[in-house]
């Protein structure tokens, strides 16, 4: 079991390397660049920008710098938000994504697996059809419909909604 897990983790390294390499070259192969706008950027300013981000260096140098950076989880400065590091932007949003994913996984494991076993044991009975029906509905209904329906239906009545609005307007202190 331990060797199996270890092997899977080690296999991730070449996979990630392949993805990173592909991403690096695909972006550079595509037409256009990071500093294009409908209003022309003066040539001198563009050259300075390219220099600042190291884009004036030969491709292999850029690639090596990118790889060593990625290995240390350093993705460099953001092109779009020049005063920020990519790492910071990810660090800001990642905990929220992890929390959400964690809860989703927990529900999937605690509810989904037993229901699946139950359906499998009683194959082709009404219990099986009911379980599969719920699963199919969950997959088929778009997330943007299912999500708000669940939230609104399960948690929020009009009173809570009004409170949310009041919070957003700052009429109530909701910190």
């Amino acid at each position: 079991m331990v060797t199996f897990l270890l092997r899977r983790v080690l296999l991730m390294v070449p996979t990630l390397w392949a993805i990173a390499t592909l991403a690096f070259f695909l972006v550079r192969g595509a037409p256009g660049g990071p500093f294009q706008s409908e209003k022309e950027i003066p040539a001198a300013a563009r050259a300075q920008l390219m220099h600042k981000y190291g884009l004036d260096q030969p491709l292999h140098v850029q690639y090596l710098r990118f790889l060593t950076g990625v290995a240390r989880l350093d993705f460099g400065p953001s092109y779009k938000f020049p005063s920020r590091q990519v790492r910071e932007i990810i660090a800001e949003a990642l905990p929220v994504s992890l929390e959400l994913a964690g809860w989703a996984l927990l529900i999937a494991v605690l509810a989904g697996v037993p229901i699946g076993i139950f359906a499998a044991v009683r194959q082709n009975t009404s219990a099986d059809y009911a379980a599969m029906g719920v699963a199919l509905a969950g997959v088929s209904v778009p997330n943007f419909v299912l999500g708000p329906t669940l939230v609104l239906g399960v948690r929020l009545g009009p009173a809570e909604l009004a409170e949310l609005i009041a919070c957003a307007r700052g009429e109530r202190d909701c910190a």
Partner: peptide
């Protein structure tokens, strides 16, 4: 002075916004 009005806009809708949007429509 601005990047073109036609540049693609990324669509975000945080949970709160979505809720409010729906709530307002109700």
């Amino acid at each position: 002075m601005v990047s073109a009005p036609g540049t693609p806009r990324r669509r975000i809708a945080t949970c709160l916004h979505l809720l409010l949007a729906l709530g307002a429509g109700c």
